[in-house]
């Protein structure tokens, strides 16, 4: 299990994370406009916590957790 937290109000909608995601779980949430005036990124099920999105993101939008083996 992994967990991806998206701070939507930081997102500027550049989409670099969407391009880099190997599982294609990221997409623009076109139903929402954030405080900066962008459609922010959102995540579907299926994140593997590879951290690629966070690596390319210029705006520190993501916080990512992964369940440790044997952990809860």
């Amino acid at each position: 299990m992994s967990k991806i937290i998206i701070d939507k109000d930081r997102c500027k909608g550049c989409g670099l994370c969407i391009e880099v995601c190997p599982k294609k779980v990221l997409f623009f949430d076109n139903d929402m406009v954030n405080v900066l005036g962008y459609h922010p990124v959102a995540a579907k099920e299926g994140c593997i916590a590879c951290g690629f999105c966070a690596t390319v993101c210029p705006d520190v939008v993501f916080t990512i957790y992964r369940e440790e083996k044997g952990g809860k």
Binding site: L36, P58, D59
Partner: peptide
């Protein structure tokens, strides 16, 4: 849960003024 990625503590929580997709961030 193990943290894979979070904001480093040497970086403030402030939003930057940089344009979308800019490398500075």
């Amino acid at each position: 849960m193990k943290v894979v990625f979070e904001r480093p503590k040497s970086l403030q929580a402030t939003k930057t003024h940089y344009c979308p997709g800019c490398g500075h961030g």
